[in-house]
Design a binder for these strands. Structure first.
Lengths: 216, 216, 216, 216
DNA sequence: AATGAATGAGTCTTCATTCAT
DNA sequence: CATGAATGAAGACTCATTCAT
């Protein structure tokens, strides 16, 4: 009744939403945007529902129409964004083409998503890597699943590359994990030392990595 | 008077500490150990000072003799552990020998430290990567400094390796970042899929990485 | 405009009500019936206006057309029921006949009303005997007045019985109070130990009581 | 740890309590007194913990050291008083002597307790008779048990009276219920019409009642 | 010095009530 | 007119911190 998911709000993505439904979706989005800004600046526990309501310019009660409690608001924030990123990345990895090109496209999208969503990315990694703040809401599971799926899909690309004789015969999943690690490392580094790392520096990662796995 | 750092407690590391000072140091250590256990299991916000005091078998007031507030206690915990890890890693990197051997030793120590300190590592990465819970306490800065130092030192090893003609002429700092990323990725993966990753799998990371940077 | 009493709705009981007025009366009744069910099951504070609106199948706003607030809705519920009971009891007491028969009829009706309205009776006694939840709404006064009237009327029956030489010369009002007390005691007991008390057991009360007051 | 019962606070009623324990008992008593005043004036739901704390001149947190939540505070208030009344009444009923005298002593004590604890009595009857506000806290059960015990004991007095040939052969439990009902009715009446009922009027109840049950 | 009893600011959450549509 | 979306005041409860002993 309360705390509808996006999917439930937009009952059928095909159907035209009515005014009320569109309005709800807009409000929900505004609340999440306000929450994102606050959570990413101060972290889950330093942000009060009061603050979110104020920032979003809604009454506190309105927040609870969309999210049954603070944890679910937080979870929705992360999971929905993660799902959207995930989807876009999966599309890239599903495209045909030379594995190397696919990898390069993947890397470019990772980069773009990272810099377009910097504040949220910090929360995302805190939850993924660190101790999850929201065990109760099952946040950990939800995000982990997406993460795992992403790695699996990436591995299939390497698999294809190996069969196509482009890559050395190494465990494709391990290759996926390694690439992911390098990408994350460079992306996070580029926040800290923005002088040393221009975004293009990420290409370095690719080169080293590919050199290591290329057949010849 | 309150919240002395380790350095202040042990006024001069050369001087013999008197009984009082030694006693204080011991109490401080006991508190941190109790806190470590609790924080690493439940996270910062789910642990109360009451719990820590009880676990440490001290009065709450005593906690405040050593740490001006909860955040500084948390900070001390992470920073001091990080410093100890840092020191051990730096020693490894300072040793003479073939760069490849040094890298291998480094990797082995990283692995050992990770598995010996798993719960804390999660907190550590949440703080390093994600949104810091403790901006106020300057935790971020402190840990970042150590992290950067570690990367720099690792870079010097690559530097030497390049000069010794062992490694290709790539940016040594970038090589350090890349190695660090790969290591972290594999270590964290090995928690999630313990079946797929035995600890030795980490060698894979090294191989790919070295293949990429070795000169021929 | 808002919160009209029954009397106001049915402006003149003589006049034919128009469609609108009849409709309003019907709606009001439906709301009260929904509220009765909920209040008597869960008590005043555990029922929300939302619930009542839903149960009654009206909008929340509509509730406020008939009752200026939750307390007045509650008050209306109790008072109107109490008035209806009161009226029926008064009719019994007004009938001519041997005082003993009148008393017996009265007792039977009390019994019937009690078991037909058990849940509400509990609320009624909580309000009458205990600390009223609704001092503000003047619920206490309203119900007290009815209660007092009932006792007075009962006393007149005893009065008649004394003059007719059926009863001993005791204070009729006291006799009324005593009878009322005995009746309540037995009725409430019969909820708690339903095994021990069948409803007929109430006759016991009457016998003891009458034995005490009968003239010989 | 929190919410100790009186019994636990005063570990062994034989042992001398130490200063801390006596202090705790005093504080607990002060809180209950403040709560009594407020609850009996305004009812459970119209009183906030804030108010109680202020009235008792303690911090809110202190309330929670003695009572795990508001409901248990309320429960403690009623149950502890009820137990104390119960005990005194039981002592009276346990005394040897002519049953009529015992009944008279009982009645006098009931009267005294009633007028000495008027505000609380209202709460007590609201809970006993009306819809319990505190089902969760098991208040109902606790009070019911005491009430039942009281009736049982009263019934044994009538039993003895019957065996001693003082009373007619009626069901002793029913006699107990009837007497209880008459007493309550008169006591409550005497609040409402203080002019009509002086306290001695209660003797009327006894007379009618006894006339009804006396053998001859 | 060491304690832990006492505090009360701050938080999440509910729900009676309003008012624009 | 009837609705129910939106509101935000109010309240229970937690826990970091203080300070008298």
């Amino acid at each position: 009744m309360t705390s509808q998911t996006v999917a439930e709000l937009a009952t059928s993505s095909q159907t035209k939403l009515n005014r009320r439904e569109r309005e709800n979706l807009r409000q929900r989005k505004e609340i999440l945007e306000a929450a994102l800004q606050l959570f990413s600046n101060k972290g889950f526990h330093k942000v009060s529902m009061h603050e979110i309501a104020k920032q979003a310019e809604f009454g506190i009660g309105t927040l609870y129409k969309f999210f049954i409690n603070k944890e679910f608001l937080y979870k929705a924030l992360l999971v929905e964004k993660a799902e959207s990123w995930h989807q876009r990345l999966m599309e890239i990895l599903d495209q045909d083409g030379y594995p190397i090109d696919v990898i390069e496209n993947y890397l470019n999208l990772r980069q773009k998503l990272f810099f377009d969503n910097l504040p949220l990315m910090r929360l995302y990694f805190a939850e993924t890597r660190g101790a999850s703040l929201n065990i109760r809401a099952g946040l950990d599971d939800e995000l982990s699943r997406l993460y795992d799926e992403g790695l699996q899909k990436l591995a299939t690309v390497f698999s294809k590359g190996i069969h196509g004789n482009y890559f050395r015969e190494l465990d494709p999943y391990c290759m996926a994990v390694a690439l992911d690690g390098v990408i994350n490392a460079f992306l996070f580094r580029s926040i800290k030392d923005q002088d040393r790392f221009d975004q293009n520096q990420l290409d370095f990662a690719l080169e080293v990595f590919l050199t290591g796995i290329l057949n010849k």
